[in-house]
Design a protein around this nucleic acid. Sequence first.
DNA 1: CCTACTTATGCTCTAGTTGAGCAAATATCC
DNA 2: GGATATTTGCTCAACTAGAGCATAAGTAGG
Lengths: 310, 310
Amino acid sequence: MQHRVVIGLNAVVTALMGGEPHVLCVRREDGWGLPYGAFDPVRHRTFEIGMRDFVSRQTALTLGYAEQLYTFGDEGREAPLASLSGGEASDRIVSVGYLALSPEAGSTGRREVAWRSWYDHFPWEDRRRGDEALGPILDALMAWAAGEASRQARIALAFGQAEEGWQEERALDRYELMYEAGLVPEAERDGHAGGRRMADDGAMTSDHRRILATAIGRLRGKLRYRPVIFELVPDPFTLSDLQEAVEGVLGFCVHKQNFRRAVEATGLVRKTGETAQGTGGRPAALYARARVPVTAGLGLTLPRLRAECA
Amino acid sequence: MQHRVVIGLNAVVTALMGGEPHVLCVRREDGWGLPYGAFDPVRHRTFEIGMRDFVSRQTALTLGYAEQLYTFGDEGREAPLASLSGGEASDRIVSVGYLALSPEAGSTGRREVAWRSWYDHFPWEDRRRGDEALGPILDALMAWAAGEASRQARIALAFGQAEEGWQEERALDRYELMYEAGLVPEAERDGHAGGRRMADDGAMTSDHRRILATAIGRLRGKLRYRPVIFELVPDPFTLSDLQEAVEGVLGFCVHKQNFRRAVEATGLVRKTGETAQGTGGRPAALYARARVPVTAGLGLTLPRLRAECA
DNA sequence: CCTACTTATGCTCTAGTTGAGCAAATATCC
DNA sequence: GGATATTTGCTCAACTAGAGCATAAGTAGG
């Protein structure tokens, strides 16, 4: 039977290591990729159950929060996956992508499975040290867009040159432009005109960098209206810990005093009464998640990108 | 071969009729359902292409904007679909749901295909005439939640009893509560304890009411950060037309003068110079979409639900 | 102990945004 | 012409968010 459809599951498992967002990756012959498992309708009542099952079997990790991201089914994505799924090259491989958050980056249990920083794969998404790194990228993009107004407009919108400025959640728009312009390693593999590569991590399996970009954008957007950051920061924490986590996810820094004002206004946290040691300064009060009062706000009020970290 | 996986496509095609949001539905033996088509990996390079193809063949409509909503794959959803997909009852039927917007509710071309108002299927999502209709629903929900604090908290959050008030985009949360509490027709069909039914349109096919709830919530949320409303309101339009459309989608009314201030501030519209006739009052200026200047805001600044329409 | 330095925390000030309503303009209906 | 309806311009107060000053309370090194 030719041209079957096979359903796979991909997980973008994210956890913080020292305040930096990391993603669980698998080293394969063709480069880094996301954990992948076939979906078995007999064993798994839902996609999410299937995803948790194969992650826990491949990696010795237990996941916390999870949500469906997107289902990837474009023709042409399967070739690099055929060997993974045990199917034939003519099969259409559809992947249901999931975002999963873990409160700690535990041992992966296997050598070929590793935690990788988000920003190893997306250096242009980290604006905490300023925007100098963005210059060459914009130059390369503008060269690609030469004379084409619609490309120029897309670039301006995605990379924060327009009125609304840098929108951290548009990571996928930025990746798509980079891919089309041939600035990511996959572009060359897939036969697109290659410019200078702006990520030096090698090509990622299939469309896994796209899936990761989707996850980054989704999580960043979600921070503003759901208290998901606590899924990454276990109790107890200081407000500086929380801020560092938020800044890591957002990829830019926020005003310290305003951040604490915003967090305290949500009613989502409570002081434990303890303080943290060894901060090299005044000890910070420790906080924990409040058992969510129904009267609480649902997300953090976060500013947009202004400047680099102090 | 038992337990195959079959991929289907579902479209939530939305258009306005007289300012009211409608959805394209198909009348089947078991009640109203969404247009459904099998995904054929040979003929269709992407899901979206497949979805557009089967919609245009089933309904004589051409779609405009489209986006993927969610992929529905839970066990148990397939039984009511088996006859549609020509598969066996043991197949797992996975549906990729799409939201599609059409600038006009044209003729459907077939008798069993009809435009149905969103609010025929979700009466509790329409708050334009006030909140009296919500009373009995809340009573029934609270009866179901009796003594269970977590259920009560979910109800309060979903139905706007908490601090942040009514959040129009949480249509799916509300539907899930209604389903669990046995207040929608599908609950009885699926063997859940049935309370009083709060929608009298009969059970919808499979989980199609859930897919519709997902679409309503997605579109409502999107209004705030993308100018999607223009996909539903063709040029030229008056600001009152635009406001009526927004109110129809949101399910509540907004302050007229503030709405125009917000729209004009986006830079997304321009006056055509013409005026509309027969409004029964001062003629309204006609507007059209501006060729989006890169300096434009990306969505409308919309208020939250305050009171019923004036 | 004293000084320099670091981080945490409290508070204020200002600019901008948002919610609400008054009032005038310009049509239709009788 | 007068009543009524709708559009449109404008003002004002309350609230929000961005930025910075000042103080508190530790550590590190003499």
